[in-house]
Amino acid sequence: MAFAVLLVTMLAGAMNYNNNLGFALGFVLAGLGIAGIYHAHGILDGLQLHCLGAEPVFAGELLRVRFLLRDEAGVDRRELFLDWPGTAPVAAGPAALASRCVELPLATQRRGWQALPALRLQTRAPLGLVRAWSWVHIDSRQLVYPRPAPAGSVQPPAAAAASSTGRRPQSRDGDSFAGLRPYRPGDTPRRIVWRRYLRGTGLVVGEDHDSETQAPPCFDWDAMAGHSDARAARLARLVIDAAAAGVHWRLRLPGSELGSAGGQRHLHHCLARLAVAGLPADEA
């Protein structure tokens, strides 16, 4: 805008003084402005943009959506910025014949599949006089886990409480086994209660908490009260605590059950199911 005023002033001056070099300068600058528009367009044109998705997050956290931008046309696109409506633009352009990976934060409100809003690519390069922009609609959705209920606010189901919270009943000997039974071939040596053996009771084997003979706790959707978001939140807290405690658990959801397992993978599996549990089909 200021540039246009500058040009008009220059041309008026050149006309008044009938100054041909002045005209020349004005027209060259006008041409420069126009060429700048083409270059700005060129910075957007032919760019390769891939959405790499995001690591799942809990509702309320920032979804960090990653994009890979690649230039194959030999155009320096470093002055390219990406943003969602309402967020600060993030420099994202790759240099000529290079690629660049950027993370764009996106606020999440609730669990479930979150569609990505239209992405804006923009640049003011090369001259800073015009802004070229383009909207990209990304056909991708990201899973948002339910926000877990506050720690300690949810009690594990009573039936499984004893073995799922990680507090093991301590026998008076101080060893950490829930029960004892005679040794059978195939039992691992570490289960043998050596202290008993030393007392002459023969080989006995301790049965610990994650022995398969004892059922892991089952977190049940239907056992939770409240609307579906609240249930999902509580169950999320339970599975997170269970995973942190390193125990196995089962998760029973309407229409499905996730079998007994533990570890991070099972946790993410459960959270993913909880993210969409109880949501209408079109959202799930």
Binding site: N16, Y17, F27, A30, L32, A35, H39, P126
Partner: peptide, 24 residues
């Protein structure tokens, strides 16, 4: 950029209406 600006500048230089000045 300047080389790309030149053709346009040349066209304008030749064809831009020249009014006999001065105005002030």
């Amino acid at each position: 950029l300047l080389v790309q600006a030149l053709p346009l500048a040349a066209v304008l230089f030749i064809l831009f209406p020249r009014l006999p000045g001065p105005f002030w």
